[in-house]
């Protein structure tokens, strides 16, 4: 675990961050442009944002919508995907619908949803839900389809009912694939969260960012980008840890860790 090469691997993302900030700093100093603050200026603005009660409430509201949208999407999409993977009839019913929804950018649906549901929490949460659902359904579907038939037969011989087989064999067997979908879903949740707040400007992290842009507070704009980026990186790292623990039993899929964990 703590061999020099392992340490280097774990520290690599850290160096990448520092490198990126250094390049930014140099570029900004060289360009001397008002709308392009230096990295240090942007970082200095972060405590101001996080210290401000109003901003904090906004950011927490964003996170709450994201958690609810992601949570509901996962709770609905995993069972649906698994059922589709194991039942031809269910797959035939939902496939055409999903194929139509899949390529549509979910944010593009926002104007319609806003007309119906207003610009409040429900609309934004619904867009997050839509953004997260599809990759989770797709990966659950693929995972369930790939479950070895003899494993299900073994379960049937032990007396498991079809529903028990779905929950106690298909679900764990497909878990590595499902969690891959959830990880994509988590990043998409963050993206749709910010996008939705840019379109329906009222509250949230995306709103702070665009208000600052309107008022020409460029250091705040860049600071918000850093904050949102850091949130994404932290969420992904935490999720990756949980994922790795849950599927310890399965074959390692990548030699290189694709996260900051």
């Amino acid at each position: 675990m703590t061999s020099p090469s392992a340490l280097a691997r774990r520290a690599a993302p850290m160096f990448a961050c520092i490198g990126l900030l250094a390049v930014w700093q140099v570029a900004s100093l060289a360009l001397k442009n008002d709308s392009f603050p230096t990295a240090i200026e942007a970082i200095r603005a972060i405590p101001d944002i996080l210290g401000d009660k109003e901003s904090l409430i906004n950011i927490l509201a964003s996170l709450r919508r994201m958690a609810i949208g992601f949570g509901i999407a996962v709770l609905v999409s995993i069972p649906l995907g698994l059922l589709m993977g194991r039942s031809r009839a269910v797959a035939a019913f939902f496939n055409p619908l999903l194929m139509v929804i899949y390529p549509v950018p979910k944010a593009a649906l926002m104007p319609i949803i806003m007309l119906w549901l207003g610009v409040g929490d429900i609309t934004k949460t619904l867009v997050i839900f839509l953004g997260v659902s599809l990759p989770v359904i797709y990966h659950s579907f693929e995972g369930a389809k790939a479950v070895e038939e003899k494993m299900l037969w073994s379960g049937a011989a032990m007396g498991l009912s079809p529903l028990q087989r779905l929950v106690r064999i298909v679900l764990p067997a497909a878990l590595p694939e499902i969690l891959t979908g959830c990880r994509t879903g988590l990043v998409l949740a963050l993206i749709t969260m910010i996008t939705s707040e840019m379109i329906a400007r009222q509250s949230g992290a995306g709103n702070i960012l665009f208000n600052a842009l309107d008022m020409g507070q460029y250091d705040t704009v860049y600071a918000m980008i850093i904050i949102v980026g850091a949130m994404g990186i932290c969420l992904d790292a935490v999720f990756e840890r949980v994922r790795a623990r849950l599927v310890r039993w399965s074959e390692p899929q990548f030699d290189m860790p694709l996260s900051f964990s």
């Binding site: 037969w153 049937a156 007396g159 067997a173």
Partner: peptide
């Protein structure tokens, strides 16, 4: 008409439950 615990299969492909340990697999039935 269907599978049942009175007939126990041992498949060519093993078909063990990969998320269960050896003990977990044997205890499952």
């Amino acid at each position: 008409t269907g599978p049942g615990p009175d007939r126990g299969p041992v498949f060519q492909e093993f078909a063990l439950f990969p998320w269960k340990t050896v003990l977990g697999n044997v205890m499952y039935g």
